[in-house]
Every structure is written in C-alpha cells, then in structure tokens.
Amino acid sequence: MLLYTCRRLVSAVLTVFLSAVLVFAAVQLLPGDVATQVLGQDATPEAVAALRDQMDLNRPAAVRFLDWIAGAVRGDFGISPVSGEPVADLLWPHLRNTMLIAVSTVAVAVTSSVVLGVVAGLYRDRWPDTLISALTLIGMSIPEFVMATLLVLLLSITVPVLPAVVLDEATAPVADLLPAVVLPTIALSVVMTAYIVRMTRTSVIDVMASEFVTTARLKGLSTPRVVVRHALPSALLPTLNVIAMNVAWLVGGVAVVENVFNYPGIGQLMLESVHNRDLPVLQAIAVISALVYVLCNLAADLGAMALNPRLRTGGGSRR
C-alpha cells in the first residue's frame, strides 16, 4: 500500500513536470517570436530587442525552461512583460478568488449529485429517475456561459438581490466577494452535477444488479443496509474518478463564467492575458491548473483505496 502510494506520488510529480514542459514548449517554440507576440507586429525592432533581453530569450530554450521551473517550484513565475509586476503577485489574489467559487461549487455539486445519482439509480426507470435523468440531460446540454447568462436575467435583473456584475478589485477582501460567489457557483454546479449524477446513476444500477447485492438482499437485510453497507462503497468508486475529472474541467469552465459575471478570478486573468498576449502569466496559470488536476486525481486514487480493499492490500496475502 505504501509502495502504491509512493508510486502514485512519483507519477503525479512526473505528470505535472511533463505538463509544464508541454506548456513551455507550446508557448516558446510555436512559430513566431515571443517578444513580437507580446508587443504585436507593429513594435519597433529596438523594443523587441529590449524585451527579448528582459525575457532572456537569447538563451537556449532548455536553459530557460530549467530556470523557469526552478523558479516556479519556489512560487516565482517571473515578471509579466505587460504590467511589469511579478506574475505571482497577479496570480495569487485571482487564484484565491477562484478557489472561493471552485470550493463552493465542488461542495454543492458533489453532495447534490451523489444524492440525486443514488436516488435515480435506486428508482431506475420510475418517475424519480425519469425526472432526474431529464434534468441532467438539460444540465449537460446548456453551456455554462448560457447558464450564467440566464441566471443573470432571472435572478439579478428580475430579482435584484445578487450582483450580476462584480465591480470589486481582485484584491478585495473575501467578505466583499462572498455575495458575488453565489451566482457563478449555481451556474457551475448545475453543469457539474449533471455529469456526476449520470455516472453515479449508472454505477449504482450496475452494482445493484451485482451478485453480491442480490446475496445481501436474499439474506433478508433491510434496503437501507443493503444500499449503504453493500452497494455504495463499490458504486462510488467510478464516481470518484468522474468527480476528479470534473474538478479539472471546473478550472476551464470557471473562465467563461467569471467572464459573464466579471468576477476577478483566475479565468478573468487568463482572458486578460490572452488579450494582452501576456504569455508568462498564461504559462503560470497552465501549470497551476495542471497541478490542481493532478492533485484531484491523486485524491481520487487515495479515496478509491479507502473504498476498495483490493487496492489497499494488493491482493497479496493469498498467493
């Protein structure tokens, strides 16, 4: 078990490293010169040369990468050539704001979707299932920016309690931002819930049809006991992975939703950087996102280990 955990950790670190390589390569090695990219086609050769100097572009890419990754490990992502500020100073407040949305979304979506998924699975093909399945289909089919737009229309314009547009700075205190978190959270939760519900439902149905659940029923156990003790641990296993995947999706989905609400999070920063061609910031965001993704998957794997004794003991003692 310890061995498994260690191997998993090493592979997680490796994945993040590889992602960093990919991002760096994509940004630095794609056709066109980064300095020209940043300054635009009309820049004077002098300005380009100065920026190249500032960004150390005259050194080999491999050396620059190693420098960059060494800095990144310490939380130093270099200087933004657009604002002249350290990338990290831009990044952290935005990241904090996004985490507000992300954490509340995950909390809402995971709870509601597991409950709904289990209900749908248990009431397979009866009305609660039909209703939940129809709702999830709609949830999956409406893009999050549409969901956000509709929420703005419904709640903040017709019922003006919650802010439709956030005017706060990225560095505003958390308490000021809290009301602004509600609508993005709802928009993202709806979409995320839809996906997790479907997975949970399918796996609950599979497990409820399994031989060991039938055996448990034929032992005369009560339905709640059969579901909670026998079925759920196995049924939630595949759901865990889907949750991890969805958290990773969230990092992307949040960009669009933040844009609709003008919420000063990482997505907003990302779009700004794309507009300004602020590549070092984009690079940093990509690596942070990859780290989040890998951490989520790691957590899911460790969770799976808790649910599945087979993984815990490696099935070793018998052979």
Binding site: L22, L30, Q37, V251, A255, V256, M270, Y293
Partner: peptide, 14 residues
Amino acid sequence: AIPPILALLVVVTV
C-alpha cells in the same frame, strides 16, 4: 492535465 479551454486559448493566441 491542462484545461481544454486554456490550451485552446494559448494556441489561438499564438
């Protein structure tokens, strides 16, 4: 590990 929309934005930017 890289969010699709971010990857797309980077490519489109470049």
